[in-house]
Amino acid sequence: MSNTQPLLQVRNLRVEFPTRRGVLTALDDVSFDIHPGEVLGVVGESGAGKSMTGAAIIGLLEPPGRIAGGTITLGGRRIDNLPYKEMRTIRGRQIGAIFQDPLTTLNPLYTVGRQLVETMTTHLPLTPAEARKKAIEWLELVGIPAASQRIDSYPHEFSGGMRQRVVIALALCAEPKLIVADEPTTALDVSIQAQVIALLKRLAREKGTAMMLVTHDMGVIAETADRVAVMYAGRIAEIGGVRDVVKNPSHPYTIGLMGSIPPITHRMERLLQIEGAMPRLSAIPKGCAYNPRCPRVFDRCRVERPDLIPAGATRAACWLYDRADKEAAHEVAQTGYGEVRHA
């Protein structure tokens, strides 16, 4: 993207859940960077580990989940091994979080003004009076009408879309460098969704805030993100610029995922579909996790796990793009084995 130092560096992140039946690996060898001012979209289907990645970064993994390996570095400082108290000062001040359901994010017993003021006085050198003034500015900025009156309202007095605007103000008001937004628009209606996306995009650009946008909605990613990471079964399957991943994906899973999105532009006799379902964490297949569903699978995929390698304009974890396997893959394509199901 740019030559500047990345703001967030995630390296070989591994998250495990010890259970009675053994340790489950929820995230395995996840690595990516986010540069200042950049929006990284993280997509995948439920259970792919996208929300888990966000939770690991903000230090809110639900126990018994734990970071079992790898590092997370924010602005040159390692944050994955910080004690709870220190992490609290980073959350809010350095990393803001936006979650799917605005009603559970806001405290129902406090007015939104009090919640904004509290966040700002905790993290910024402001007096309560100054913070209140700023809180009104923030509410105006996120598009809440009559902000100076609405500041003393309780969360239940706002509609869903307005509440999510308050949550955005709350996440941004301590001026963090990074926002982790986990399905910020999923609970909203389409017409409100568009408003909220436009707002997030504008604010991130104006304030130079970097964002990790976790969602299952490829449309939201295409509109908002600069780069995209596609996750499958706890690993990154493909990562690259948003245009390349959306229009010209390399990994067979991304191709299938993009193909199964119903188009608004025309009616299709049949939608492209990926057979089967994503494996459970307890039964991730050997080799490439996608191999049982992959139309272009060959022997190596069933044995050896691929890492991210250059593939076209993006990077994909797929043996099809390994030089040594190019020929084998070509043969597979020639024999038409399962080919063109993904067109």
């Binding site: 389409v190 409100i192 568009a194 295409a222 509109e223 999105i261 608004i264």
Partner: peptide, 18 residues
């Protein structure tokens, strides 16, 4: 209001209000 997957760079005008 539907996000643009074709990436035509079309400017969307979200409908106001709720």
């Amino acid at each position: 209001a539907i996000p643009d997957l074709e990436m035509t760079g079309r400017q969307r005008i979200p409908v106001g209000g709720e």
